[in-house]
Design a protein around this nucleic acid. Structure first.
Length: 787
DNA sequence: GAGCACTGC
């Protein structure tokens, strides 16, 4: 095996001897593959260096050695393109060969040749994400087979940045031999052989290609994170592996739980490589801490006072807590500087909803000593879990871990997902501690007892699939061709009740029929990257003459809050929001803001400035625009008509409000009494208040809401006034000027005949109210008929 | 009159 840099470049004399203008070797099969595989169709034709003879021509698939590959990598010309290698390439090659994983390349290949499924474990810094796919590339030879190599990542940024890195390592242009595919961006082309992608993206593809037939090898990276998409992919791949013996699968994970993956994948063999991290000393508190924020602030100050140079990372649970802690630390450090000549300290908050330029500040250098010979400065980052997985910060030497994070919990009985501050798992605690040892030996201060760590923390955080509403997942699985959900072999099967709830919800939405089969509507809904209720609302919207408007609202509901409300300008922000307020509710207010934004854009204004002045998030509004374009394309494919009720029409807003119900009829609440602020949700009987962020001031007795949030109280957020009649009997839409030339027969809509069968309601105020309203409608209809 | 851990399609 070639390990030293001096062997990287072989003599040019030797190379010239082998350049004999032979064409690239192809066999008939490969030509066939290349023909039907859309990714490789032009591969042969497009090769730039026709006369180039690649060392790969002598490679035999699944029989290559590490030495062969290393030799090919050391050639003057790129074996994949025929172009001469750049100097940068050789520089990178040198560092690649120092990675821990490099030593086991042959061992990896031996195992890869022998088995269909392989579990690969590598700690951070082992180089697995960049190197393993390249090792596979040199053995799988996708340019001969026409089958790509895919490597999945849980996050977009990772897919993009790793693809760029590997393109550099292979000395090719990103988007050519190496590319990536994420939502809104596909940077792959006809020459692409190795493709990084998000796990969700591969899942989307699988909906139309149940065998994942484009791929010869699929690598699932960061499998230990157990995202919903990874869990579903694993179960699918387990099935596909039986049907497609030619498909290779590699499951990559951090060390934890490797055995679970092995057992799950038919006792697949395991290969482990060490990482490259420094030791981290762990400290526990002798007694449990009552107030962890207080304890955390104190610990940070103690580190600053007593420990040598090095930056601090403190984990807390949410925005408010973090901002508060930052303020307190800042004040205390000022005192320390005055009283005991402490060094300066820069304190940075870090959480997901922080705008990117503020997130970037965490990478600033720590402040220098305030005067010559003074004590050195340091920085302290106070972060949510985002610093545990998504963002790595070099230079951290001290980690303070109070042992909590906000986690999503799903209660299938009430159908409510909520965020709850909960103790983290042992695996999380280890991950956090590891953040202290990336550049040199570090220390981790756990603000709980050693006994609590050992006895009270669970081993692993529960996978997402056990903590989520599965309506979307079940719909996806149906579309993926999974017939038997009960026996679908998930690594951690969710509670049967969660599954039942999802099936029930999809049945009410008419996405599944009474036999649990996918309906036409369900099939269409699964094509949209949306929750089923939103998808159904969007698909039904032409029946209410307002698909343009519902498309906008759907997009706005799919991105983070567009309303900006800085702490120092809340009042002005609220006043601005009032300019867009629609008396009938928050959905219409969103729409008004969006229309104003588009108006500003069209009149050539500086939109960023306009957004800033109006306390709207430019970032989120433009992202909504992106989503809108994607959804619009899907609507066009399915010939879902785009139309609007004329704005002058008195029913413009009414039609939109009714259309909301086509998807959200299960998210309706009735006011307890005409003077009360408390509402009761339909069927679940939860007592809720309207979230204070609403614009609704004169609420009707009935509202439809977008989301249920559980914080200090139970709130419903983004609400719109509705009339209960709309829920009940077929009451045709007013067909004034709003017809738009469509087929009238479709427009006598019953929103959800099954759900609002009043007889099926439990006895109570809601049932009596609905019964009264039904009676009223009947009387009215009878009077009309009798006239 | 309160607050949004983090991803992804």
């Amino acid at each position: 095996m070639i390990d030293s840099a001096k062997n990287l470049k072989r003599s040019s004399v030797e190379r010239e001897g082998t350049q004999d203008h032979k064409r690239v070797k192809t066999d008939g099969d490969a030509k066939m593959e290349a023909k039907w595989n859309p990714y490789l169709a032009h591969y042969k034709e497009d090769r730039d260096n026709e006369g180039f003879r690649s060392p790969l021509d002598d490679f035999e698939r699944h029989k290559t050695t590490a030495l062969q590959a290393a030799n090919a990598e050391s050639e003057d010309n790129n074996p994949w393109t025929g172009n001469p290698h750049s100097q940068q390439y050789f520089n990178i090659l040198k560092t690649r060969r120092d990675l821990p994983v490099q030593k086991q390349r042959q061992e990896f290949l031996d195992m890869y040749h022998k088995t269909q499924i392989l579990v690969f474990v590598g700690e951070t810094g082992s180089g697995k994400t960049t190197q393993i796919p390249q090792y596979v590339l040199y053995d799988e030879l996708p340019h001969q087979t026409g089958k790509l190599i895919a490597c999945t990542q849980p996050r977009r940024v990772a897919a993009m940045s790793v693809a760029q890195r590997v393109a550099n390592e292979l000395d090719v242009d990103l988007g050519e031999e190496v590319g990536y595919s994420i939502r809104f961006e596909n940077r792959t082309g006809p020459k692409t052989l190795l493709k990084y992608m998000t796990d969700g993206q591969l899942l989307r593809e699988a909906m139309h290609d149940h065998d994942m037939s484009r791929y010869g090898c699929i690598i699932l990276d960061e499998a230990h994170e157990r995202t919903l998409a990874t869990d579903i992919l694993m179960a699918l791949l387990k099935q596909i592996a039986e049907r497609r013996k030619d498909l290779k699968i590699i499951v990559m994970s951090a060390t934890l739980d490797a055995q679970k993956f092995q057992t799950y994948f038919f006792n697949a063999p395991l290969l482990a490589v060490p990482g490259r991290t420094h030791p981290v000393e762990i400290f526990y508190t002798p007694e449990p801490e009552r107030d962890y924020v207080e304890a955390a602030v104190r610990t940070v100050l103690q580190i600053h006072a007593g420990e040598p140079e090095g930056d601090i990372l403190l984990f807390l649970t949410g925005e408010e807590e973090i901002e508060d802690a930052c303020r307190r630390i800042g004040l205390e450090v000022d005192d320390m500087i005055r009283e005991s000549d402490a060094g300066p300290m820069a304190v940075y908050p870090l959480y997901g909803t922080l705008p990117p330029h503020q997130q970037q500040r965490i990478f600033d250098k720590a402040p220098a000593a305030t005067r010559k010979g003074g004590r050195p400065g340091r920085k302290c980052i106070v972060s949510t879990n985002i610093a545990e997985t998504s963002l790595t910060i070099d230079g951290i030497v001290y980690v303070v871990d109070p042992g909590f994070s906000k986690q999503k919990i799903y209660n299938p009985r009430t159908r409510v997902e909520s965020l709850l501050v909960s103790p983290i798992s042992k695996a999380s605690a280890q991950q956090r501690a590891g953040r202290a040892g990336r550049t040199r030996p570090g220390k981790c201060f756990r603000l709980y007892t050693e006994n609590a760590f050992k006895k009270e923390l669970i081993e692993q955080t529960y996978p997402e699939i056990l903590r989520s509403n599965l309506a979307n997942t079940v719909l996806e699985l149906k579309k993926l061709g999974v017939e038997d959900l009960v026996h679908f072999d998930l690594m951690d099967p969710p509670a049967p009740e969660t599954m039942m709830r999802a099936l029930e919800e999809l049945n009410y939405l008419a996405c599944l029929d009474d036999d649990g089969e996918l309906t036409t509507l369900g099939g269409m809904a699964s094509e949209f990257p949306l929750d089923p209720a939103l998808a159904v609302m969007l698909i039904s919207s032409p029946e209410f003459y307002c698909s343009n408007e519902i498309l906008s609202i759907t997009s706005l509901l799919s991105v983070p809050q567009i309303w900006v409300r800085p702490n120092n300008a809340r009042k002005r922000a609220d006043e601005m929001k009032q300019q867009f307020a629609h008396p009938d509710g928050d959905h219409l207010t969103l729409l008004n803001a969006y229309h104003a934004y588009k108006g500003a854009e069209q009149s050539g204004e500086d939109v960023k400035k306009w957004c800033h002045e109006h306390f709207l998030s430019f970032r989120h509004l433009s992202s909504a625009d992106n989503v809108r374009a994607q959804l619009k394309r899907i609507m066009e494919i399915h010939e879902i008509e785009l139309m609007s009720t004329p704005f002058q029409d008195k029913d413009y807003y009414t039609n939109i409000r009714r259309a909301l119900l086509a998807g959200f009829f299960m998210q309706v609440a009735m006011r307890e009494s005409s003077t009360s602020k408390v509402y009761k949700t339909v069927k679940d009987d939860q007592l809720v208040m309207i979230h204070p962020g609403t614009v609704v001031t004169s609420p009707y007795d009935w509202v439809v809401y977008n989301e249920f949030v559980l914080t200090t109280k139970q709130y419903v957020r983004t609400v719109t006034n509705i009339r209960a009649e709309w829920l009940l009997v077929s009451s045709p839409l007013p067909l004034s000027s709003s017809r738009c030339g469509s087929n009238d027969a479709n427009y006598a809509q019953e929103i959800a005949p099954n759900y609002y069968d009043v007889d099926s309601f439990e006895k109570g105020e809601i049932k009596s109210a609905l019964t009264r309203i039904t009676e009223k409608i009947r009387r009215r209809q009878a009077t009309r008929a009798g006239r």
